[in-house]
Design a protein around this nucleic acid. Structure first.
Lengths: 340, 340
DNA sequence: CGCTGGCACTCCTGCAGGTTGAGTGCCAAG
DNA sequence: CTTGGCACTCAACCTGCAGGAGTGCCAGCG
C-alpha cells in the first residue's frame, strides 16, 4: 500500500519534471496528480525515495528531481511502451515509402526519427559483414587505375579506386570482372575474401600479379572496417530545446556527433531488433555525455539485426514516447529493407 | 593622410574586435596598435567612421564594433589573403592524400576545412550536370527489379532501383547494358538523356516497352536535381565557440544546417574557382542568419567549377585567415580530383 | 502505525539602490 | 589638425532586503 504510493510519487515526479523541467515540490505534486493525500505525507515518501537514491534535491529549499537511478527505475518498472496511434503509423509508413534507394531509406529514417522524438537521431548503415555480395563492377578510369564498385544485398554500394602498376586492357578487365563475379557473387562478404583467394592461381603466370593486386584491393575494401562505420545524424536542431547550460551539455554533444566512432559506441550494444535498449546518463560509455540518455534498438530484415538506430537526448526525456517511436521506426525500416 | 589613419583605425577595430569579442575603445586601441596619436584623436576618427556607418556603438558608454558595412570595407580594401605557410600546405596535402574515393575526398575536405578555420564547413559534391557518364551498370535484384548504378567521371556513383513490370532475363539485361553504355558512355550527363532517347527504337517492338521504362528511369535519375543537392557539413562543434546568445545565432544555424537546400543557397553564388566569395551578415540570402557570414569558393578540375565549398561563421571572424584557408583547400581538392 | 496540520528554517529569486569604471563628446588651447 | 581636460552616460557589479517555495520535524489524531 505505502509502497505503491511511493512508486506513484516517483512516477509523478518523473512525469512532472520531464514536462516542466523544474524541480517538483510536494504541494504542486498533490495538486496536479490527485494523489488523495496531503503534501506532508508526500514529503515523507519523498524523503524515503531520496534515501533510496531515486530522487535528489538541487539545493535544500528546492523541489526534487529524479536521479539517473530514478529514471532507470521508472523505465524498468513504471512504464510500458505505449503503442503508436493509427495516424502515427500511417504517417511513418507514408514518410518512408517512396524511398528509392538505400541512401534514401537511411536519410528518411533519420529525419523521421528526429521529428517523432524531437531529439537527435542516429541511424547506422546496414553492416557490411552480414550482407552478401550481389555484384562486383570494374571500370577503367585510366590505363592504370581501376574503379571497383561493390553492390551488396542490402542495396549498399561501396566504391574503391585501385592503382595497378600494369597497363590494363579491356579484355583483361572483362576477364577479371567475370572471374571475380563468378567467385564472389552470392557469398557472404566475410567469406568473399576466401572465395577470391584462389583466383590468381587460375590464370597464366604473367597476369597473375595483376590479378593478385586487384583481388587484394577488393578483399581489403570488403574487410575495411572503416566503411562499416557509416552513420547518419539528424535533428541536431533539437539540441536547441536542451535549454540547459551550453558548455555542459550541448558542446560535448556536438563534439560527439562529429565523431562517428563515438556514435557507434553509443549505439553499440543495442543490436537486438526485438528490444529497445535505454542507456541513462552515466550508464553510457562516454563520460562527457553523462547527462544524456540513449534510446536505441537494432533493425534488420531477418531475426538477426543488420545495424542499429536510435536517439540521444537529455536524461530528462519522455521515455515511453521515445522508446515506442524508436521501435516503430526500426520495424518499418526492417520491413522496407526486407522488400527491397 | 588623415584618411589613411581613419582606415588604420577601422582595421585596428576589426582586428581587435575579432580577437577579443569585446567592443573596443579609443584608449585600448592606441595602446595596442601604436598609432602614434592620442586617444582623443582616435575618438574623432571614430566619430567620422560612425557617421559613415562603418562602426557602431552597442550602447552610449561602450566601445565600437564594426558594422556589416565595416567588415565589407575591411574585406574589400584593407586586407589581402595571406598565403598559407609551408607547414600548413604540407598538412593540407598530407591530410587529403590517401583518400581512395570521392566520398573520402569530400569527407576529408570538410574535416580539414573545419579544423583549419575553426568554423562550420560545408562541401558540395561535384555537380551532376557538368560531369560525363563513365559507365552504367545494371544488376538484377529480382526478376522484376533492377538496380542501376551510374558511374560518373568525377568518381561519383549514383544508384537507383527500377521497377519493371516484365520478367527480366539475363540476356535482356546484358543487351540493355551494352546498348545503354554504347549510347551514353562518354557523353555529358545533360546530353545523355538525348543520347538514350532513341535507344528503344533500335530493338524489336515486343521488348521496346521494357527498354523505354528502363531508359526513362535512367534519364530521370540523371536529371534528378535532388541528387544534385548533396552537401556535407562538418565542424558543428565549432558552433560552441560562438559564445553568443543561443537562441539568436546557434539555433537558427543548426536549423539551417539540417536543410541541405538552404546550405546550397548559401554556397549558391560562389561558383568561381579563382575567387573567394564573402557574404557578410544580411548580405546573405537567409534572414535568420543575419549575424553570420559565408566564405565560399568554387572548386573543380578545369577552369569551370564543379561545385562549391566554404564555411559559415559569425560575422565576427578572421576573414583573411579564413579566406586563404578556403582557397587553399579548394585548390588542393581540385588537383586531387584532376588526378583521379 | 500511518496520516496530517503546524511551525521553524533554509535558501533561491527578484528588486532597489549605490558605486565603479570604461568610454564618450565637446571644447579650448597648442 | 591634434591634444589634454572635463563633464556626462550607462552597463556591470555589489549589497541588502523582502518574498516565497519548499523542506524537515514534531505532536496529535484515527
Amino acid at each position: 500500500m505505502i509502497e505503491d504510493r511511493k512508486l506513484a510519487v516517483l512516477r509523478a515526479i518523473v512525469e512532472d519534471y520531464v514536462a516542466t523541467q523544474e524541480p517538483v515540490g510536494s504541494k504542486t505534486l498533490v495538486e496536479r496528480h490527485k494523489l488523495g493525500v496531503s503534501p506532508a505525507t508526500v514529503r515523507n515518501d519523498m524523503a524515503a525515495l531520496e534515501d533510496e537514491g531515486l530522487i535528489a534535491q538541487p539545493h535544500t529549499s528546492a523541489g526534487r528531481i529524479p536521479t539517473d537511478k530514478g529514471y532507470r527505475f521508472f523505465v524498468d518498472r513504471l512504464t510500458s511502451l505505449k503503442p503508436m496511434s493509427a495516424a502515427e503509423r500511417r504517417a511513418i509508413a507514408s514518410f518512408l515509402e517512396g524511398a528509392h534507394d538505400l541512401d534514401d531509406v537511411v536519410q528518411r529514417s533519420v529525419r523521421l526519427l528526429a521529428q517523432l522524438t524531437q531529439q537527435v537521431a542516429i541511424v547506422q548503415y546496414p553492416t557490411f559483414a552480414r550482407s552478401t555480395v550481389r555484384h562486383v563492377e570494374l571500370v577503367a578510369l585510366s590505363t592504370s587505375r581501376l574503379l571497383a564498385v561493390l553492390i551488396l544485398s542490402t542495396g549498399r554500394v561501396e566504391q574503391r579506386v585501385i592503382e595497378v602498376p600494369v597497363e590494363l586492357t579491356d579484355d583483361l578487365i572483362a576477364d577479371l570482372r567475370t572471374r571475380v563475379n563468378t567467385s564472389a557473387a552470392g557469398t557472404q562478404i566475410s567469406d568473399a575474401a576466401m572465395a577470391l583467394g584462389d583466383l590468381p592461381d587460375e590464370v597464366t603466370p604473367e597476369s597473375r600479379s595483376t590479378y593478385s593486386i586487384v583481388v587484394a584491393a577488393l578483399v581489403e575494401a570488403m574487410s575495411d572496417h572503416k566503411s562499416d562505420e557509416r552513420v547518419v545524424v539528424g535533428g541536431t536542431a533539437n539540441l536547441a530545446r536542451f535549454g540547459d547550460s551550453f558548455e555542459q551539455s550541448i558542446k560535448p554533444m556536438l563534439e560527439a556527433l562529429e565523431e562517428h566512432v563515438v556514435l557507434l559506441k553509443l549505439l553499440g550494444e543495442a543490436t537486438s531488433p526485438t528490444e529497445v535498449t535505454v542507456r541513462i546518463g552515466h550508464e553510457g560509455p562516454i563520460d562527457q555525455l553523462s547527462s544524456t540518455s540513449v534510446v536505441a534498438t537494432g533493425y534488420g530484415a531477418s531475426r538477426e539485426a543488420l545495424a542499429s538506430l536510435g536517439i540521444v537526448g537529455p536524461t530528462r526525456m519522455d521515455y515511453p514516447g521515445t522508446m515506442s517511436a524508436v521501435r516503430a521506426v526500426a520495424r518499418y525500416v526492417s520491413t522496407i529493407l526486407d522488400e527491397g
